[in-house]
Design a protein around this nucleic acid. Structure first.
Lengths: 239, 239
DNA sequence: GACGTTTTCGCCTGTTGGTCGAAAACAGGG
DNA sequence: CCCTGTTTTCGACCAACAGGCGAAAACGTC
């Protein structure tokens, strides 16, 4: 059963927390099919690039988002009728943008809350929801939060990011303790000025170097003797 | 940059624990390129199927493995030169076979330990190692073990499966307690006869119904009040 | 200086996973 | 028939961890 002309495209669900909501970058199609509907950025895979290079190129071309801090493969979408007329297989990606940047985007491009999408083209709504689910799963058992956060931040700001991305309340106490025990958070020593109503100045934190590598560190059934393998971080004894 | 004739194939890394070692199913290529080298089963994506259907079809055609209990997407391999001569994008899958079956395979097909592969074709060795890593990661934070185990088994037999798959020692005590606390393991009430050297008869266990769905249940930073959400399992009070 | 606000820190609790050792249940040999 | 060796099972203990709560700290405003 030989396939005749199976095209391949790459698509990116770029997520960012904006205005306390998880949002996705979409552009409005101007041509048929699905003209007027909103689609994920992407395009056809080139001859001299792999899918990862391709999605980075397409993002840099079609929309101006060089601030994407994390890109990972979501999966392949290949239902025969997913795009009418032609056979087109898509490799979908999840992209993350820190909350403190506001990339310049073309006129036909806009951000939409993941929970309230406009009419979408093809199977792109399904891809967006897969991206959201992947993000939520990985936020809890990896250090992926760094890709959504600015370089420096307060605990309460980070908490709001997690709340928006996860969709459920998060305790600031636990968040700080969990992340510091994993040695992925470090205080910079500086403090942020309090808000208009006063209050104690918040300590400013930063993700540590080793946190920038996404590590699946919360594995259960570890090899014996690997407890608290903090890696390069020295555990200082209490004086 | 339009692509000219990007072909698409699916490949399956089918893993099984045999003779206390994690092994993978490979077949020996008879034609160039890479004639004589060992390759993953798979083939070209058909016009009327998606990649998941395709990999199941190819497995049923090329090798007789209908006993595959779990199939999941690994990722896309798309380096421009991964197959010499043509542009071929591959969607790789991870397949798992329980340890108690021995599928009939064609003459050119054989099992090899993942840790000691023969000369492999193209980038297939990389795919096999990705499959092994995925399995190891998921074994610890999901209930994926059921896909490697027979329908009924003793704890020590299950322990040997985990040791072979994970590559490091596993405590039988912990394994039983961890899995029973997750309500994925249940005793059948029967016992297996002891070995030639005697010993206490081992209790026979079975995976529960809800364990057959792979659930990412070990998430940290859970929503509040979701502790011990055992789902459909009733927690009986101690009398 | 009193009050409200926000952040931070310490304490307590329940759960989990790792380790160890004793007890249970069997086969075989003296 | 008891004793020993073997294998499994179970309970106890410990360390680590996440969740929850409330007090204390550090600010602004009135």
């Amino acid at each position: 059963m030989p396939a005749r002309s199976t095209g391949h495209e790459v698509l990116a669900a770029v997520l960012q927390v904006r205005e306390d909501a998880l949002q996705v970058l979409l552009w409005q199609r101007g041509k048929e099919p699905d003209s007027g509907r909103w689609a994920l950025p992407g395009g056809v895979l080139g001859d001299t690039e792999d899918v990862e290079e391709s999605v980075r190129r397409q993002l840099a071309e079609k929309v101006d988002v060089r601030e994407v801090t994390h890109v990972e493969q979501l999966g392949v979408f290949s239902a025969p009728g997913r795009v009418p007329g032609i056979r087109l297989v898509a490799t979908a990606f999840l992209g993350l943008v820190p909350s403190d940047v506001d990339p310049a985007v073309p006129a036909d491009t806009a951000w939409f809350p993941v929970a309230d999408l406009p009419p979408t083209a093809f199977d792109h709504a399904e891809i967006v929801h897969d991206a959201r689910d992947r993000l939520r799963a990985k936020l809890s058992y990896t250090n992926l939060g760094f890709a959504l956060a600015p370089r420096e931040f307060t605990i309460s700001a980070l908490r709001e990011l997690y709340v928006a991305a996860l969709g459920h309340p998060v305790s600031a106490t636990n968040l700080q303790r969990v992340l510091t025990r994993r040695h992925v958070l470090a205080a910079t020593g500086e403090t942020a000025p309090p808000g208009p109503a006063g209050g104690r100045p918040a300590a400013v934190f930063r993700f540590t170097e080793r946190a920038l590598r996404v590590t699946d560190a919360s594995a259960v059934l570890r090899p014996p003797g690997s407890r608290d393998s903090a890696g390069d971080v020295a555990v200082r004894p209490v004086p």
